[in-house]
Amino acid sequence: MKSLAELRAIRERMEKQIDLREAGEDRIRVVVGMATCGIAAGARPVLNAFLEEVNKRDLKNVTVSQTGCIGVCRLEPIVEVYVPGQEKVTYVKMTPDKVASIVSEHLVNGRVVEEYTIGAAE
């Protein structure tokens, strides 16, 4: 059974890492729409999957965050990826099983997964 004291161990480990998520301009941002429309369409497991993948691969230059309604509710769950210096990429009708390939292809290798983008859906 887990106890809150385990958080202290996480803290000690994180404080040792000097490269702890530096807040810089060169960070990749993953933004998940978490308004009523997104939540109803299944955004919660998608956001969870991003957190798990980013943690598993220890991607220190990636921030996963949440936003409200992006405005195309029928295509929810929607995820926007901002890579510094590049145009925003919008992924639509997201599911947890699409997350791993977006993380490995787009966030790590810099190749947009075209088939999941809003351009391919419309």
């Binding site: 809150l4 004291a5 958080l7 202290r8 996480i10 803290r11 994180m14 404080e15 998520r21 957190l51 798990e52 980013v54 943690n55 996963v64 965050s65």
Partner: peptide, 12 residues
């Protein structure tokens, strides 16, 4: 347990 320096939003 976490102290002030570490955000609850850290994935881990």
């Amino acid at each position: 347990e976490l102290g002030d320096g570490i955000s609850l939003a850290e994935p881990e």
